[in-house]
């Protein structure tokens, strides 16, 4: 399953590391990532893949002190890779 995670957080030292670490440890792989500061908040959008619950990942991210909000949108369901003849 592939999802887009939106995450808003205080751009404190180590905040991005914490977010990436939680995402990895909770069983997800990051495919793309984009982040920029807007109105003193860092807004991060990342495409992640994984088989576990994305809502739970957002709950885990929201436990981080800097993170104010995390949400996800499902984009693509994974399909078995088809081998070419």
């Amino acid at each position: 399953m592939k999802n887009i995670i939106h995450c808003e957080f205080q751009p404190q030292p180590g905040a991005i590391e914490r977010i990436l670490r939680v995402t990895r440890v909770r069983g997800f792989a990051i495919e793309t990532m984009n982040a920029a500061i807007q109105n003193q908040l860092m807004k991060l959008e990342m495409t992640v893949t994984g088989e576990r619950c994305f809502t739970n990942l957002c709950h885990q991210l929201e436990k981080l002190h800097e993170v104010q909000h995390a949400s996800h949108i499902t984009t693509v369901r994974s399909h078995p890779v088809r081998k070419l003849a």
Partner: peptide, 14 residues
Amino acid sequence: ILGMTLGIVKHSYL
């Protein structure tokens, strides 16, 4: 130490 301990704290400060 902040980097090494990210996964075992609720939060950390340098």
